[in-house]
Amino acid sequence: MSTSPPCIAFAIETTLGNAVFLQNLKNAMARRNDILPVWLPIDEHADDLWEQLPLVRSRLSLRGGLRTRAALRRAVAQVPVRAAVVHTQRMAHLAHDFMSRVPSVISTDATPSGLEDYLRYYGLRSQHAGWVGRAKNALHRRTYAVAKGMLSFSEFTKGSLVKEYGVPDARIHVVWPSVDTGLWCPKPEGKPRDGVVRLLFVGGDLGRKGGELLLRWARETRLRGWQLDLVTSTTFEAPPGVRVHVGVQPNSPELIGLAQAADLFVLPTMADMSSWAIAEAKAAGLAVVTTPTGGVGELVRDGVDGQLVPVGDYAALASTLDTLVASPDTLRAMGQEARRMAVERMDLHTMCDRMLAFIRGVTGV
Rank of each mutant, 00 (worst) to 15 (best):
S2H: 14
S2L: 12
P5K: 00
I8F: 04
F10I: 04
T15H: 15
G17M: 12
G17N: 14
L25W: 15
A28F: 14
R31M: 08
R31Y: 13
D47Q: 15
Q78N: 10
A84I: 07
M99L: 07
V102G: 06
V105Y: 08
S113K: 13
G114D: 04
Y121S: 03
Q127H: 11
H128W: 06
V132D: 05
K136V: 05
L139F: 05
L139M: 13
Y144W: 15
L151G: 09
E155S: 11
G159L: 09
K163C: 07
E164T: 03
I172K: 05
V175L: 14
W184N: 01
V197A: 00
L199G: 02
L200G: 01
G207I: 04
R216K: 12
R219S: 11
E220V: 08
E220G: 01
G225M: 05
D229Q: 07
A238Q: 13
V244S: 10
G247V: 11
P253T: 08
A259V: 00
A259R: 05
A259E: 06
L264R: 00
L264M: 06
P268K: 12
A277D: 02
A277E: 04
A279G: 06
E280Y: 01
A283Y: 01
P292F: 11
G295H: 09
V304N: 00
Q307L: 06
Y314E: 07
A316L: 00
L317V: 00
V325C: 11
T330M: 01
T330F: 00
T350A: 13
D353C: 02
L356F: 05
T363V: 06
